[in-house]
Design a protein around this nucleic acid. Structure first.
Length: 340
DNA sequence: CTTCTAGCTCCGTTTACATCA
DNA sequence: ACTGATGTAAACGGAGCTAGA
């Protein structure tokens, strides 16, 4: 058995969040991820979960495929749950564009901010709908205050417009635009929260979803695309950190186990040397599946093996060895379980 | 069947911006 | 108040893959 950790990067397509039963606040972190520890096999390449392009949902086939492994993967799920989300009432739902579309409504007003200058023909409308009392709609003003320490408002506005203009063309295509200093526009909390919610639904977007989201948030589609791209990268990075931690713990466990086994082996050898007839009883082999920790006992015909072979499959196995033992790969048990 | 193209994601990198000492 | 170091996140550009013409 191999210890297979899904780092989420070496497989194409969306990642296995759909498999995970959502449990929040694992490891006490706000950001969360899932970790899948499963048996690696030649079919692993087929276990990638693909998000349905049209619905953004994971299909039952995908689920079945992912469940097809004989060893159900251990998953650590630390789902994204930002402080922003925590402040939301539990009943609060963001109006996802594709959902509102399905419901036949275009009523959800987008979160304003980083406003474009009418590059898609709806910005002016969005601006005109702004309510002075709305935290969201006050963004433009807040934005100017927010940055007033660095630049004056006119410069900022010009920067936004430049960004907006640039966004309508494909990336890096226009020399004029390239000549212009790259302005980075921080997304508002509302925009980020909205995008986070969307990301929780599905971490990739089809073009329709991207456009709808961009329209909803008053961003360029390219910005939405880049945000998801960066968000996936962040997820992967965090996942890698979690995986590393887990592997470190595995390593420590195995080292400790190895040390213990070596010690026990020495004791057994010493015992054998002092009592040469002691070991002529049939050897007992304990076989434990590391994943389910079921132990099967078999009595071998061998008498006093001259060498003891111990195979540790994973650090998950905790075996109290008696006289002689071996840890066989869970494959044996899997086959046995299958026959059960 | 091959080639071309468009569109996508991933990845590494750059850069603007915020924060802190 | 100013400054430099550092971290974060938006954005860029290239590579690779895939579907469709």
């Amino acid at each position: 058995m191999e210890l297979a950790l899904s780092l989420g990067g070496d497989t194409p397509g969306p990642k296995p969040f759909s498999l995970v039963e959502k449990s929040q606040k694992i490891l006490g972190k706000d950001l969360g991820f899932c970790m899948a520890v499963g048996k690696s096999s030649a079919a692993d390449g087929e276990n990638n979960i693909r998000c349905n392009e049209s619905t953004g949902l994971f299909s039952a086939d995908d689920q079945r495929r992912s469940d097809s492994s004989s060893d159900p993967p251990l998953q650590l799920d630390l789902l994204p749950f930002s402080p922003v989300h925590r402040t939301q009432p539990s009943s609060h739902k963001f109006p996802f564009p594709w959902l509102t579309e399905k419901l036949g409504g275009d009523s959800g007003r987008g979160v304003e901010g980083n406003c474009r200058r009418g590059d898609e023909g709806h910005d002016q409308e969005g601006a005109s709908l702004s309510s002075p009392n709305s935290a969201v709609s006050s963004f433009q003003m807040d934005f100017s205050v927010f940055r007033s320490g660095k630049r004056d408002f006119e410069q900022i506005t010009a920067g936004n417009e430049g960004e907006a203009d640039r966004g309508t063309s494909s990336r890096g295509s226009d020399e004029e635009e390239n000549a212009m200093a790259r302005k980075k526009l921080r997304l508002t909390k509302e925009q980020s929260a909205f995008l986070e919610e969307s990301f929780k639904e599905h971490n990739t977007l089809n073009p329709k979803q991207k456009l709808a989201l961009a329209k909803q948030l008053n961003l360029r589609p390219r910005q939405v695309e880049v945000w998801f791209q960066n968000r996936r990268a962040r997820t992967k990075l965090k996942q890698t950190e979690v995986d590393c931690e887990y592997l470190k713990k595995c390593c420590e466990t195995l080292t400790e186990e190895n040390r213990r086994l070596q010690k026990e082996l020495q004791e057994l050898r010493a015992l054998k040397a002092s009592q040469p007839f002691y070991m002529q009883l049939p050897a007992t082999t304990l076989t434990m599946c590391p994943s389910c920790e079921r132990v099967a006992t078999t009595t071998s015909a061998a008498v006093v093996p001259t060498t003891t072979t111990t195979t540790m499959a994973t650090g998950a196995a905790v075996v109290k060895p008696s006289k002689l033992f071996s840890l066989s790969p869970p494959r044996a048990h899997s086959q046995q379980a299958a026959s059960d």
